[in-house]
């Protein structure tokens, strides 16, 4: 009996250890395979369309919305921001390069020098500060407009987040992964509970999307945000959405661009590697 128990315990320990050391590549394979098996009829890129890939009636509504997309004006505003020179005569092109279509696909990435995950929004504000300009707010407004423009320019390119073989980068990735799977808040829910266990199910009137493809369409125009804004601007960044999700499970949200959310973005976007960028998106 003792031997059997020891054997079972050892097997359990080995299994736990294997899970703990799974590489990002292995995580990605399991993540993708899960959704492909659960939703066999859906093409990989279609996961980037969130709930509209899962429900025919929602898809019809969304497609009609896309005929005159509400985010269009904000792409134009973002383009203006991109083109407008700073007081010192330089512009965003001085920081990101002349071709705006090559920007979005580089983010998020690991920066070895600062030992942290760098996001597009982080670099937009760094560029402003470096050129003596006032940084934008982190979650909405100009930062989301510029992100919408850069996302639109990058449409069709494949997400390609690289997790370098650097212990600190792997630590950041693991922290992001842990965040995604850890239950939090008074409702005791993890990101994974809604987006891995229950995609396709409803939470009140909303259809839960799959974790796969969730980052491809950010920044996003949300009807809910538009309704709440005095100027009807419904654009928001990924970190705005993270904060909203945490708030909904009654956890205290972290600040946009906090280490926690940057690392979550690192993991979360890596899980959508190979999917096409389709930003900006429209969501309810």
């Amino acid at each position: 009996m003792k031997k059997i128990l020891t054997l079972l315990l050892s097997a359990g320990l080995v299994a736990t250890a294997t899970q703990a050391v799974s590489s990002p590549k292995e995580d990605l394979e399991k993540f993708r395979m899960y959704y492909e098996q659960r939703f066999p009829g859906i093409q990989l890129d279609d996961f980037g369309n969130g709930p509209y890939a899962l429900d025919a009636s929602k898809r019809l509504q969304w497609e009609s919305m896309e005929e005159f997309p509400p985010y269009e004006d904000y792409i134009d505003k973002g383009s203006e921001i991109w083109e407008t020179p700073f007081k010192n005569g330089k512009s965003f092109a001085s920081c990101f390069g002349k071709d705006p279509s090559k920007v979005r696909v580089k983010y998020p990435h690991w920066d070895k020098a600062s030992s942290q995950v760098v996001t597009l929004e982080g670099d937009i504000n760094k560029c402003l500060k470096d050129n003596g300009e006032k940084p934008f707010g982190w979650k909405k407004g100009k930062i989301a407009h510029l992100g919408a423009f850069l996302g639109y320019e990058a449409r069709g390119q494949k997400i390609n987040v690289v997790i370098p073989d650097d212990p600190k980068a792997l630590e950041a990735y693991e922290e992001g992964k842990h965040f995604y799977y850890a239950k939090r808040g008074q409702l005791n829910l993890a990101c994974a509970d809604c987006h891995i266990q229950y995609p396709g199910h409803r939470v009140r009137g909303q259809l839960l999307s799959t974790g796969l493809g969730q980052t491809t369409h950010f920044p996003v125009f949300r009807a809910k945000w538009s309704k709440a804004a005095a100027n009807s601007d419904g654009m928001g960044t990924l970190h705005r959405r993270y904060g909203g999700c945490n708030k909904q499970v009654r956890a205290r949200p972290f600040k946009a661009q906090s280490r926690q959310y940057r690392n979550l973005e690192f993991f979360h976007t890596y899980m959508s590697n190979g999917l096409a960028i389709n930003a900006p998106g429209y969501r309810e």
């Binding site: 736990t16 899970q19 703990a20 799974s22 995580d27 399991k30 993540f31 899960y34 992964k177 842990h178 799977y181 850890a182 239950k183 939090r184 008074q186 005791n188 993890a190 994974a192 891995i196 956890a251």
Partner: peptide
């Protein structure tokens, strides 16, 4: 709530992929 939040975070310390 604070004690429950702490307890929850401790219990979730090893949270990881579950499909």
């Amino acid at each position: 709530q604070a004690e429950a939040g702490y307890k929850q975070a401790m219990e979730q310390k090893n949270a990881g992929p579950r499909f």
